[in-house]
Simulated assay, not measured.
Amino acid sequence: MIRVLLVDDDPLVRMGLRTMLGGVSDLVVAGEADDGAGVRELVASARPDVVLMDLKMPGTDGITATAAVRESPDPPAVIVLTTYDADDQVLRALRAGAAGFVLKHTPPADIVDAIRRAANGEPVLSPSVLAGLIEHVTSPDRDRDRRDARELLGTLTDRERAIATAIAQGRTNREIAGELYLSTATVKAHLTRLMAKLEVSNRTQVAVLLHDAE
């Protein structure tokens, strides 16, 4: 079973998600919160695999809560719930460690698929959607971001850089293994090392970093 934590200040949204997920055999709602405050503690007690996190809440916002969750030991994946796909807060949430985002009007089957993908360690948005989102948001510190990203990428070996590029293109570990003639276990080992070098915690952040370096 995939355990899901719902964090949204709108009770109707939580009810709709709870009802929808209740009809899926491999998903279970492990808990709910109406504010980002205390979510890290709730994660520790409810032990979810995935958190569906609203961004704009009147108390502690979703970005702050996402960062706190991702700093937890063995953190769950965080999927951002948002109304718009070109909000600068979405990009900030991705940088804070969110695995991706889903729009609140996304069809139920796609939300379920996103939860399953996130629980499996996969990004919850296509590379094209990610690129479009990042391009929409102009960073005032673009030159600094590029310099910092290139410095981090410079610490990678050629093999690690190839794997990072494949990740940014949306490839799965199995696909990368086939393209580079490696075992899946070897790809996972390289992935663990390169994420440590890049100081990121998930595949989506790898994609963001490669974009920053361009």
Rank of each mutant, 00 (worst) to 15 (best):
E160Y: 05
Q169A: 15
G100M: 05
V137L: 07
R147A: 13
A119I: 03
P127K: 03
R161L: 14
E135Q: 12
P108D: 04
E135P: 10
T83D: 08
A118S: 13
R147H: 11
D88N: 11
E135A: 14
G97W: 00
L180Y: 08
I134T: 11
L156I: 08
R117I: 05
I176R: 00
L125S: 03
A114E: 01
D145S: 11
R92D: 15
T82H: 08
T172Y: 04
D141Q: 10
I163E: 05
I163W: 01
I167P: 00
L91N: 00
A162K: 10
A96K: 01
D158N: 14
A98E: 01
D158I: 10
N173P: 11
L182N: 08
R150S: 13
L152T: 03
V102K: 00
A86H: 15
T83A: 15
I111C: 05
T82C: 03
D158F: 09
L103H: 08
G170D: 00
N120T: 09
R174A: 15
L94M: 12
L153D: 05
N173C: 08
V124N: 01
L94R: 00
T172C: 06
D143F: 08
A86K: 14
H105P: 07
L180E: 05
R117E: 03
L152H: 10
A162G: 11
R147Q: 13
T155I: 04
L133E: 02
D87I: 01
P123V: 04
R92K: 15
D141V: 15
R150F: 06
I111G: 03
A93K: 04
A177P: 02
R171V: 08
R146F: 03
A93M: 06
D141W: 10
V112R: 00
G121I: 03
R92G: 13
I176W: 03
L153V: 09
R117F: 03
E135I: 09
Y181E: 14
K104P: 05
A131C: 06
T106F: 02
Y181H: 15
V124I: 11
L182W: 04
R150I: 05
L152D: 07
A109P: 09
N120K: 14
I134L: 11
L103S: 09
F101C: 02
R92M: 12
A86E: 15
H105F: 07
L180S: 02
R144D: 09
R174Q: 15
L103A: 04
A114K: 02
A118G: 08
R171Y: 15
S126E: 15
N173K: 06
D141G: 06
S128G: 09
L156P: 14
R142N: 05
R116H: 04
P140H: 05
A86F: 13
V90I: 15
Y181F: 12
D87M: 02
A166D: 13
L182V: 12
L125K: 00
P140D: 08
